[in-house]
Amino acid sequence: MKRAAALLLLLSAVAGAAPLPSKAVLSGTCCPGVVWAPDSRSLLFLDGPPVRSSTGIYSVSVEGGAVTRRFSSVAFFSPKLRWAVRPGTGENTTLERLSDGRKFTLPTRGSDVTWTEAETRLAYTRSDTSGNYDRRASRVYVADVFGSPKQVSTLYGGGISGWIGDSTLLLNGKLNASGRDRDLFTLDTRTGTRRTLKSALGFRGVSLSTDGSRVVYTITFDSAARNGLWVQSTTGGAAKRLDSFGSYRWRDASRLLVIPLIPDGSPHLLREYNARTGAWRTLGDLGDQVRQGDWNVSPDGKRISYLSAKDGNVRVVNLPE
């Protein structure tokens, strides 16, 4: 009954939603996976021949216009664009500080690197490469920049979900290979203190708010009491289940943007949940659909970009305050 009421409420919101104007800043289906620059004034994307003269990371203003090459080399860049991360063909990954070109290596075996907000510490996993995923061991390491790595945890069927501050990791996985449930938990990498936030068969879409004070996640294929979209404080306490399901991104420390799943082919609706007050509001509809969940919020929380399902263009929307 509750879900039916929530669906009726959502459908009424769709009917009354005002269109959100958008502007195409890239065209020609060139650029899936566009990300925001740290200053929220431009978008970055990977491109090359035949459209561009050479392969690199390119930039375009949120107002559109000329495309310029930001980086001539291809790498995994840190969120604040302070570091270039270049996995090698063997054990080692090279990390280069862009301000002075200073480098160091870590034995990541090509795995992703997760940075703290200050980008002075990082974490990565080294995982088994064979066997059932649920029973594969993932060893979690942390390191200061230019420092030596230290193992802080071993997980099975899980990994790193992000940093909370400079010393605490958010992790998810099983603590023993034969267990059924995974835990979503925080781990103080300096003291070893561990706090379980939630246990479930599995977690999807785990995402920390911009200040790390809250986490959102989806549980599926579990019991009716566990399934759903949840928001929770990273200090613990009860989780709040949201009467919605779809694609989501944090706008800031407390506001979560959600594009609800409405499988009727209609334009995608953009809604906002305030985790501090518990209130929902409908921001409007895109007059379009987002292709394959390819959308992102600017670091300042004022805009979103998305890949249009209608024409393949990358479009920018100014969000209501």
Rank of each mutant, 00 (worst) to 15 (best):
G179S: 12
S178N: 12
A253M: 13
D211S: 05
D211V: 03
L187H: 00
D211P: 02
R255N: 13
L242K: 03
S178G: 14
D181Q: 09
R180P: 04
S209I: 01
S199N: 06
D183Q: 10
L257K: 03
V215W: 00
D211L: 05
K198L: 10
R251V: 07
S199M: 06
T189H: 01
R226C: 10
S244M: 14
R190M: 13
A225Y: 13
T234Y: 06
T189D: 01
F245P: 08
A224Y: 14
S209G: 04
D211E: 04
A200L: 01
T196D: 07
A225D: 13
V216D: 03
D252I: 01
S209V: 02
G236C: 11
R214V: 04
L229N: 03
S207I: 06
S233P: 07
F221E: 15
V258E: 07
Y217V: 02
V231Y: 06
R255I: 12
L229Y: 05
A224R: 13
K198M: 11
L257R: 04
R194N: 06
R195Y: 08
I259R: 06
L261K: 15
L197A: 01
A224E: 11
I259T: 12
L261M: 15
F221Q: 14
D222Y: 05
T189S: 02
S223N: 11
G228D: 06
A225T: 12
V215E: 00
D252K: 02
V216Y: 03
L184P: 00
R194F: 04
S223L: 10
F245T: 13
D211R: 02
K240R: 14
G246I: 09
S223R: 11
V258K: 04
S233T: 10
L256R: 06
D183W: 04
T235W: 14
S247R: 13
V258D: 07
D252M: 06
F185K: 00
T218L: 12
T235V: 15
R194S: 07
R195G: 08
G212T: 03
D183R: 07
T186V: 01
L261A: 15
F245Y: 15
T235K: 12
L201G: 05
L197F: 01
S254C: 15
T193W: 12
L229D: 02
T196R: 05
R182S: 08
S213H: 06
T186I: 01
G179R: 08
K198N: 09
R214A: 06
T191F: 05
G228N: 06
W250G: 04
A238I: 12
G202W: 08
A225N: 14
V258G: 07
R241Q: 11
L184I: 05
G202R: 05
R194E: 09
L261R: 15
R190K: 14
S247H: 13
V231G: 04
L242A: 08
L197C: 03
L261I: 15
D181V: 09
S207A: 11
